[in-house]
């Protein structure tokens, strides 16, 4: 299945901003995090299709997955 993975702020350093990536069906968000080697403790917000999600959630074809470190102020 195809999932659009979007990285923000410091997560882009040495990685990418946005990419469509292929995963086996039922891949969980946690598996994507491990694949991208983002330390769990640095993730403050995960969104799937613009809504908060947890690492154990399974992804679906066409999902848009976004990871943010803690950046808190405006």
């Amino acid at each position: 299945m195809n999932v659009t993975v979007k990285l923000f702020a410091t997560f882009r350093f040495g990685r990418f901003a946005a990419a469509t990536r292929h995963y086996p069906p039922s891949t969980s968000i946690g598996e994507v995090i491990r694949e991208l080697q983002i330390p769990d403790t640095e993730i403050s917000m995960i969104m799937v299709n613009g809504r908060h999600a947890a690492p154990d959630q399974q992804l679906r074809d066409g999902d848009s997955l976004a990871f943010f470190p803690l950046v808190a102020g405006g």
Binding site: K6, F8, A9, T10, E42, S44, M45, M47, G50, A66, F68, P69, L70, V71, A72, G73, G74
Partner: peptide
């Protein structure tokens, strides 16, 4: 020590919120 004040804000300024708030709709 806090990642928001120690890292996020000094690196990207408050404009760091653009992509976050956009993603949240």
């Amino acid at each position: 020590e806090h990642p928001g004040t120690g890292q996020g804000l000094p690196t990207f300024g408050t404009a760091e919120m653009v992509n976050i708030v956009n993603e949240a709709g």
